[in-house]
């Protein structure tokens, strides 16, 4: 499965916000969105990744950009994970139907039935500006990758 490429409009999708409401492709419009796909809440590697990305949030805010973390965990697990990490990055759940949105975006790892390690930056018009799929779920993209993605918006 290949990840959605730059220049493609984000297809119809539905994820779960932390409060149980729906997050759809329409919620991507009006500002830049960084979607961070991580395999599982409470896996040790993801723990570090989101704490590091938390440091980027002021930089994102300056660029009218927002970051969300996406996994196939249920919202309750994601919220507990977020609290444990001490991060404020919003969580989006791709729990039911499992991985459907991640599959639509090419960010699903079929062999393990989980979201892959991927980054997708969506411009304010709802079109993918940049995307990155790790060569394997254990490979963590650094903040340099996030910055690369942000730089692609409007480029």
């Amino acid at each position: 499965m290949s990840i959605i490429s730059a220049g493609t409009a984000v297809p119809q999708l539905k994820l779960g916000n932390e409060d149980g409401s729906d997050f759809t492709q329409e919620d991507l419009k009006g500002r830049t969105t960084v979607l961070v796909f991580y395999p599982f809440a409470f896996s040790p590697v993801c723990t570090d990744q989101l704490q590091v990305y938390e440091e980027l949030l002021p930089e994102l805010a300056q660029q009218n950009a927002v970051m969300y973390a996406v996994s196939t965990d249920a919202s309750f697990s994601q919220i507990a994970f977020k609290e444990k990490l001490g991060v404020t990055i919003g969580q989006l759940s791709d729990f039911e139907p499992k991985g459907e949105a991640s599959k639509a975006l090419g960010a699903y790892f079929e062999p393990a039935g989980m979201t892959n390690r991927a980054l997708i930056v969506v411009g304010p018009d709802g079109t993918v500006a940049w995307s990155h799929l790790a060569s394997n779920p254990g490979e963590l993209p650094g903040v340099d990758k996030v910055r690369e993605g942000l730089a692609a918006v409007g480029a």
């Binding site: 963590l140 650094g142 903040v143």
Partner: peptide, 25 residues
């Protein structure tokens, strides 16, 4: 140091660099 570490590609701790090699965790 934080800015340098993030710029070098650190995505957790420890983040280790040897010479010009890739960062390791």
């Amino acid at each position: 140091d934080l800015a340098a570490g993030l710029g070098a590609g650190a995505v957790g701790t420890p983040a280790i660099l040897v010479g010009d090699g890739a960062i390791e965790h």
